[in-house]
């Protein structure tokens, strides 16, 4: 339920705290499921409960989000010319999803280069005002890595299929990935924009051995808290309360000052 301020209640009451509940990032009765294809050189069809749901799905592409009823689904990946999912190249796997949650199922290589599917839950919790969330997922056939942001190690020693996440001030960061303990990037540096109230998820995928490591990016709307306050006066000139004598003098000066400022401003 969102409460509009303009819905016509008496002045001074309709802004009372607690009227407006934060908007839900995902409604309670559905699960949002995205699918990322992170297996190089292997287009597939994605079957969900026996139905071809994502046809001719290309490596490096992101599908969805599908809005699914909470429950358990059987997911299988087949060759793009398969007639059905009876002969999958990957799966079937069961994915269980809960309402009000966001997931990304990633078809990718494990650390040894074998194809697998990893379901990740995407953190939808509200960020602080002015902050966004950065999530890094290691889904590449590669050793453990360090993740760099603006020249500093942000997440250390991340291994396939682990993830790391943290909230940072909304800004554009120069991100890079190096092997753990090293400084030369194996991926990046690349600019990643972190928006307030958005979970930006960066995937490392591909294979180090085959020389096709790459990055993929997904964004999930969460919600950022509003600023805690608006303190927009610091001198007392606009006081509407009882006026002590000293303030009357101040007020007269204020009027004179305001007039002068108005003139100066108008000349700009």
């Amino acid at each position: 339920m969102r409460t509009s301020l303009t819905a016509g209640a008496a002045a001074g009451t309709l802004l009372a705290a607690g009227l407006a509940a934060p908007a839900l990032a995902v409604e309670d009765d559905v699960a949002e499921v995205s699918v990322l294809h992170g297996i190089p050189d292997t287009p597939v069809d994605v079957y969900v409960d026996g139905a071809n749901t994502i046809d001719d799905f290309q490596p490096g592409d992101l599908a969805g989000p599908l809005e699914l009823a909470p429950g358990t689904y059987e997911v299988a990946l087949t060759a793009t010319d398969a007639a059905d999912d009876s002969d999958p190249v990957l799966g079937p796997v069961e994915l269980t999803v809960e309402g009000g949650m966001s997931y990304t199922a990633v078809a990718h290589l494990d650390a040894d280069g074998n194809a697998t599917v990893t379901p990740f839950g995407n953190d939808l919790s509200e960020t602080a005002a002015g902050e966004g969330r950065l999530t890094i997922r290691h889904t590449a056939a590669a050793p453990a890595v360090d993740v760099w942001a603006d020249g500093n190690v942000l997440f250390e020693n991340l291994a396939n299929p682990d993830e790391a996440t943290g909230d940072v001030p909304a800004a554009t960061y120069e991100a890079a990935v190096s092997l753990t303990g090293e400084t030369d990037p194996v991926l990046g540096p690349t600019d990643v924009e972190i928006q307030a109230g958005v979970n930006t998820i960066v995937y490392a995928w591909g294979s180090a051995e085959d020389g096709n490591l790459d990055l993929a990016v997904q964004t999930v709307d969460v919600h950022a808290a509003a600023p805690s306050e608006v303190q927009a006066g610091t001198y007392g000139y606009a006081d509407q309360g009882g006026i002590p004598a000293i303030a009357v003098i101040g007020g007269a000066l204020a009027l004179a000052g305001a007039a002068g400022l108005g003139l100066r401003y108008a000349r700009r």
């Binding site: 749901t53 046809d55 592409d61 599908l66 010319d81 398969a82 990643v192």
Partner: peptide, 20 residues
């Protein structure tokens, strides 16, 4: 050859490149 081999019970799924 790509063929549509089963009904799409989930409706249209939007697919896009995830490249930065």
């Amino acid at each position: 050859i790509d063929e549509v081999t089963a009904p799409r019970v989930l409706g249209e799924v939007e697919v896009r490149s995830a490249s930065p």
